[in-house]
Design a protein around this nucleic acid. Structure first.
Lengths: 246, 246
DNA sequence: CGCAGTTTTGATGGACCTCAAAGACCGTGG
DNA sequence: CCACGGTCTTTGAGGTCCATCAAAACTGCG
């Protein structure tokens, strides 16, 4: 695999410094992490890790988007994780990867060899604490996703996905959560289908239907304009009033 | 809610002592936990926690089976967690319950008030470590479950559920993983449907079909005899050879 | 026995999948 | 510049799996 190793930043400059697994580390601990980290980069479409691979490192996504997915023998594929900047890859104490990890845009990750990282986990409790927090957040996300997969209609699934991406984008930009929003879908139709438990044809059809109904507009294939986020939210099947619960 | 408070055991006698969140605690730490714990019991069918409830405690399931579930406005329900003895309820740092928790058999839990527990989490790293381990295990289970919900057929879903229950039972009893096995389903048809993202009619039909095909036999409605676990496994759509990966 | 809850079975329809082909987009090279 | 191929996307036609609606059978219990 043609991974380029680059060394382009200090931890203190790192864009995910305050959100990744290292968020709570300061001073000496951060220096230690800095001394053992290394970078890897992958190009869009490249497989980063294959299910069954031996894992000798853990990593944080710095830039780009990657997916975690499982495939059945006959080829049916289900995405089980969407990895965005600051998300963590790997599990302390495990050395065989259970899922396939794919870069869907150009991706750069910050790696630590597993052994030293596990030692750090014992000596530096704030890393474990942060990891616990992140794992529990992912568990919540997985449970929302289970409701989507098990009970939502195709239209609700697509609406939910667009809403999730829109919410995340507006969150980052600290915009108002309603009014006109435009987002760039970081996924192909096929990747969306794998996320939603649908076929890519159904995804395409439902996007066309939402467009015809004026819920969304398209600019090219990837850019979506949402005239009114509230209206889109009504299509997701979720509580409209249900704000964050914590 | 008619919860009976009982005080029936020492931690050292506790059946989940070595698997729950307290597994790594010894001596003084265990004494401290013992001094602040209290029990609650629920009868089969009873709601333990409602989504949106204020949570002032966390807990470990000692006996019985409970479910975690989400319901949409129009009543569609998806189970997102199955809580067995040693499983943990609640999340440190969160005080509003995001899911509905239901006792599906008589259930006893060991509780800690949230505040003291959170303090312990800071002073006693082994609790946090164990909690991290448990959260990561649940995340893996959730991801398997996502594959089931998103991509498996009704027949594969039912087979998977029976296989999951059978595996867990044989694990506990340390039996051979093949040959004849019999298990008691701890769930009603409706609960199975909520687990699998199906209707209860489909669950019933698929169970009948598996029975007609000789994959399983029934004794009453709840007890299932599996003449050959391997044969059942082939119906799940999973890799037959894929052993545990870690 | 009668009743309520659970499960099974049947009939029908619809949402989504499958198979197929055409259209849009993009970079490459003549 | 435009033709060309490759990838991604859209659209169409038909079929299937599962949901829905309905009723009957079974179970446990007062």
């Amino acid at each position: 695999m043609n991974q380029s190793l680059i060394e382009y930043k200090e931890c203190s400059d790192c864009p995910i410094r305050h959100r990744a697994v290292c968020a709570r580390c300061e001073g000496e601990e951060l220096d230690h992490l800095e001394s053992i980290k290394y970078y890897r980069s992958y190009t869009a479409g490249q497989s980063m890790i294959w299910a069954g691979d031996r894992m000798d490192f853990v990593a944080s996504v710095i830039e780009g988007v990657a997916t975690l997915s499982q495939t059945m023998e006959d080829g049916r594929t289900q995405m089980v994780g969407l990895l965005l900047p600051s998300d963590f890859i790997g599990r302390p104490g495990r050395d065989i990867a259970p899922y396939h990890v794919t870069a869907i845009s150009d991706v750069t990750v910050c790696c630590f060899r597993k052994k030293p990282f596990e030692e750090l986990l014992v000596t530096t409790p704030q890393i474990g604490q942060r990891l616990l927090e992140m794992a529990l957040d992912e568990l919540d996300a997985a449970r929302e996703w289970m409701l989507l997969l098990g009970r939502k209609t195709a239209r609700e699934k697509i609406s939910s996905l667009i809403a999730i991406i829109a919410r995340r984008d507006t969150e980052l930009k600290a915009l108002l959560p309603s009014g006109e929003v435009s987002v760039v879908l970081p996924l192909t139709r096929e990747a969306m289908a794998d996320y939603l438990g649908l076929t890519l044809e159904t995804v395409s059809r439902q996007i066309s239907a939402l467009k015809k109904d004026g819920i969304i507009q398209l600019e090219g294939k990837r850019k979506v304009i949402i005239p009114d986020l509230e209206t889109l939210m009504e299509e997701t099947g979720d509580d409209t009033d249900g704000g964050p619960l914590y």
